[in-house]
């Protein structure tokens, strides 16, 4: 288990493409540089999608954890 101090949390459980990415983008907009968002989703596609989103936007994916059909992401705002 990870232990990042999340400044903000977002639950995207039950949502499908492209909502986890869109809601993550919106939540990250509200953070200051260096702050961390914890996002949880149940969409298996979000593993690749969040990684792709991070690559394009320059934010940092600290860790992604897949367990029991839940995917947890720790994202650091650039």
């Amino acid at each position: 288990m990870s232990d990042y101090n999340a400044d903000s949390q977002l639950d995207c459980s039950g949502l499908n493409c492209p909502l986890p990415v869109l809601k993550t983008k919106k939540a990250m907009d509200d953070l200051a540089s260096g702050q961390v968002l914890k996002m949880v989703s149940t969409d298996p596609g979000s593993l690749n999608d969040i990684a792709a989103w991070v690559k394009r936007t320059g934010n940092e994916l600290l860790e992604s954890i897949a367990e029991d059909g839940h995917f947890t992401f720790y994202l650091k705002k650039s």
Partner: peptide, 12 residues
């Protein structure tokens, strides 16, 4: 609409 909203979220 999916592609456009996602591309905008990817700063395009």
């Amino acid at each position: 609409f999916i592609l456009a909203s996602t591309a905008a979220a990817m700063e395009m």
